[in-house]
Amino acid sequence: MPEAPVVLYERRGPVAYVTMNRPRCRNAQNSAMTYALDDAFYRAADDPEVKVVVLAGAGEHFSAGHDIGTPERDAHLPFERRAGLWWDHSDRPGAESRFARESEVYLGMCRRWRELPKPVIASVHGACVAGGLMPAWVCDLIVASEDAFFADPVVRMGIPGVEYFAHPWAMPPRIAKEFLYTGDRMPARRAYGVGMVNRVVERARLTQETDRLALRIAEMPGFGLALTKRAVNQAEDLQGLHTGMDSVFGLHHLAHAHDAETAADSLGGMDVSAMKGAAIGAAMKEANG
């Protein structure tokens, strides 16, 4: 039996539904998923019948982040580059490899998707953690279920946040600092309170409410939506989003290089089990005051 595609695509009326589909590993993003997402977004952009795109995750979670430990992790493999002109990372050593790869599949792809000239709505449930924040944050709107939570715990690796560093634009700067300094989970209701999420609904109504919002937006003229999206994105860039990300991307890779020299690997020795254990420990401390 052939394996299920890592990204599902379906159009229903004026809405394209793009679904990350690695549910058994909580939709951890390997390169295969990244390029499949790119295919899906390009398909939606090129279809004149599509007015709005919805991004979701199959299974119990939206996305647990970048794939740092499943058997299908493919960070060493070459892929056709689309988001930039950095060379193939797979035959390069050390920081040269990491910088080239992450310029393409992380920062570059997210910037590419942010410019899709149609509204994109993230439909988030369960975990939206670390690298999972990135595809959510490139979306124009976020509808979250009450059980959704958001976290960026990579400071535990000695790394100042994920590659698509939208934190101070997705939430106020002091909240962003707390979010990063603690690595704690931010519940959907608090994410709504700080302006990161547009709507919070019961889990059973998440799909229905996302659909309703998508169809309402789809009533607007497509070109008007595209220009409005460009206008708001340009305003964010004038507020420093693009250049800010460039500067933090350099700090991100300084941290990787430091980890590679002083710890077990470029992630500071924090594999999946270590990150999970740290998160459980932090949650217990928070619960016990």
Score class of each variant (00 low, 15 high):
90 S>T: 08
90 S>I: 02
92 R>L: 15
92 R>W: 11
92 R>K: 09
93 P>V: 02
93 P>Y: 05
94 G>C: 12
95 A>I: 15
95 A>G: 09
95 A>N: 07
96 E>W: 13
97 S>R: 03
97 S>V: 00
98 R>Y: 14
99 F>H: 09
100 A>S: 15
101 R>I: 11
102 E>W: 14
102 E>T: 15
102 E>K: 13
102 E>A: 11
103 S>W: 13
105 V>A: 02
105 V>L: 12
106 Y>S: 06
107 L>G: 05
107 L>T: 11
107 L>R: 08
107 L>F: 06
108 G>I: 10
109 M>P: 08
111 R>H: 06
111 R>L: 02
112 R>Y: 11
112 R>T: 15
113 W>Q: 12
113 W>D: 02
113 W>S: 03
114 R>N: 13
115 E>P: 04
115 E>K: 10
118 K>A: 15
119 P>I: 05
120 V>P: 14
120 V>K: 07
120 V>M: 15
120 V>R: 04
120 V>N: 08
121 I>R: 03
122 A>T: 15
122 A>N: 13
123 S>K: 05
123 S>D: 03
124 V>Y: 08
126 G>R: 01
126 G>T: 01
127 A>C: 06
128 C>Y: 12
128 C>Q: 08
129 V>P: 12
129 V>D: 12
130 A>H: 10
130 A>K: 03
131 G>F: 11
131 G>W: 07
131 G>P: 07
132 G>C: 07
133 L>W: 11
133 L>E: 03
135 P>H: 04
135 P>A: 01
135 P>M: 04
136 A>Q: 06
136 A>M: 15
137 W>C: 05
138 V>W: 12
139 C>D: 01
139 C>V: 04
140 D>H: 13
141 L>T: 13
141 L>A: 13
142 I>D: 03
143 V>D: 01
143 V>E: 00
144 A>I: 01
146 E>A: 15
146 E>G: 11
147 D>C: 10
147 D>Q: 06
148 A>Y: 13
148 A>L: 05
148 A>F: 06
149 F>I: 02
149 F>M: 03
151 A>T: 03
151 A>R: 09
153 P>I: 01
153 P>K: 00
154 V>E: 01
156 R>Q: 08
156 R>L: 10
157 M>T: 02
157 M>V: 00
158 G>A: 04
158 G>H: 06
158 G>Y: 09
159 I>A: 10
159 I>Q: 05
159 I>T: 10
160 P>A: 01
161 G>C: 07
161 G>S: 04
161 G>A: 04
162 V>R: 02
162 V>P: 00
163 E>N: 14
164 Y>N: 02
165 F>C: 09
165 F>A: 10
166 A>F: 15
166 A>M: 13
167 H>P: 15
168 P>Y: 10
169 W>V: 03
169 W>N: 08
170 A>F: 07
171 M>F: 08
173 P>N: 05
173 P>V: 01
174 R>I: 03
176 A>H: 09
176 A>Q: 07
177 K>A: 13
178 E>T: 12
178 E>W: 06
179 F>E: 11
180 L>G: 12
181 Y>P: 07
183 G>S: 10
184 D>W: 14
185 R>T: 03
185 R>K: 13
187 P>M: 01
